[in-house]
Design a binder for these strands. Structure first.
Lengths: 273, 273
DNA sequence: GAGTTAGCGAGAGCACTGCTCTCTAGAGGC
DNA sequence: GCCTCTAGAGAGCAGTGCTCTCGCTAACTC
């Protein structure tokens, strides 16, 4: 019934302040009091450490068993503790999934930001390609995390939008930033003919432009959205093995080809001079 | 450990004769003897009917609970039978998943073929768009099946390649057929500049061309693969709710836009005159 | 038609899951 | 040094996949 719920619930291109759950609130309180130069008590330190251990072990299990098979009891065993004890730190299995979701989204976001940041400011294609390669590299390294974020929804699990929307939108925000700065530099123009935009879609795209203060035209925003979903489509096909094992023996070459073509779709010039 | 295994194991663009498993073999034997005009025995008829009922109930549960939560016990309850009884008909939960996988692949393939067949032979864009719309329509109607086929792999489950490869490749085979006939009609040409193909990728694409007897150049085959993964990327984003609920209020319009752009990427002229 | 066989369903059981509850020991805070 | 309060243990409930045995009976064989 609630299977087809997505990970990013309210406005993937929107986000607001994170209101944290009860456990996270506790940590948040700790942090805020720590900000007032009061050090953590030993109990608080132990608690933070234990939650971190649980997330770390959870990620290991996620990598080996997958999201749907993630077992709190197994995590408890690895932690050297009885199963009921972990409920002191994590409200439920879903809460642990949420923590892992945020962890993974942030790791992906960090790696994408770092990769994009390494390319020169004016090399728009280079920054776009760096983003794409960072997504692919992370996805291939962490297939279970990638599945959790971009694969089928975990049955019965609904990600809390207020905690996952911000980390979950970092890649598209970064991509839009790259395209927008190319547009402002006069380096963004659709190669082929552009279809006429129907009114509702045009309105949605106008809202996105307004929200981000974009100078690029709506048609190019629409193409950016297509490139975004196409990028993840290509990565998903590779991570989920949809090509079959023998069809492409050098998948990185195929991906580079796709990146070149997609850059053209987005309106980016193929390379810097 | 075995999570990141895909659904289509050996050569997604290849396929061979299906060798069926023990249960399916039994049914196969029935069919072949039936071919010799010997009617099914009452037991055999009952057996075929029961397996069909199990698959039907399994699909219902798949739709409501998702693949990872698919429970043989629940299916048994709905069948009005104790859980151990269904093991007479289905080897394991994984076997049921395989049956559902094949069922879903075939349903998708049938609907795509029917949609493509309705468009005029020479309307290459129309046939391409019909394929895309059929995939999207089916995916939105059967999100759980779509998740099973194109979402994260089910943990611990490995689809048997010999039984799933043929039904699993029907969409890409259809897409390649559309592009090839456009190419033979002289209606296929890449719009933008084409990147140089590195040797390994060129070799893989040459193998695909040879396998299908394609006249279209390798660069256009590569673009076809990109369009294929992009199509499913767009559908996945919509089915898995990656856009957020409020970003695009008319997702069909967005998809139509994507189809137009993707047709250009593949080298198809936007519409028939 | 009698005898045999094979398939079928029931039921118990094992190991596992998420999660709740109660109880106790002892570390932390005063 | 005392008291509180938290962390962990352990039992228990309801569910899962799957295996095994047992008895019934429909179907096949002679």
């Amino acid at each position: 019934m609630e299977l087809p719920e997505g990970k990013v619930k309210s406005g993937a291109l929107f986000w607001c302040c994170c209101s944290l759950s009860w456990h996270a609130e506790a940590v948040d309180d700790i942090d805020s009091t720590a900000g007032k130069s009061r050090p953590l008590t030993p109990r608080q330190r132990a608690r933070v450490q234990t939650v971190a251990d649980i997330v770390r072990l959870g990620r290991q299990h996620l990598a080996t068993d997958g999201a749907a098979a993630l077992s709190l009891r197994a995590v408890a065993r690895d932690l050297g503790v009885v199963s009921s004890a972990v409920y002191r730190y994590v409200e439920s299995r879903d809460e642990l999934l949420t923590l892992l979701l945020i962890d993974a989204f942030d790791e992906l976001g960090d790696e994408v930001d770092a990769a994009v940041g390494e390319a020169p400011e004016g090399d728009h294609f280079g920054r776009f390609a760096a983003l794409g390669r960072a997504v692919r590299t992370w996805a291939l390294r962490e297939p279970a995390c990638y599945s959790l974020l971009f694969g089928s929804p975990v049955p019965g699990y609904n990600a809390p939008a207020d905690r996952t929307t911000a980390p979950g939108t970092r890649v598209i925000v970064s991509l839009i930033g790259i395209l927008e700065s190319a547009s402002r530099a006069g380096c963004l123009a659709a190669a082929g003919p552009s279809p006429q935009l129907p009114p509702t879609l045009a309105g949605n795209l106008a809202a996105i432009r307004k929200q981000f203060g974009l100078a690029m035209p709506e048609e190019l925003v629409a193409r950016g959205v297509l490139v975004w979903s196409s990028l993840f489509g290509a990565v998903s096909f590779e991570v989920f093995n949809q090509y079959g094992p023998d069809t492409f023996t050098a998948p990185a070459e195929l991906f580079e080809h796709h990146l070149s073509v997609l850059a053209g779709v987005a309106g980016l010039p193929p390379a810097v001079g």
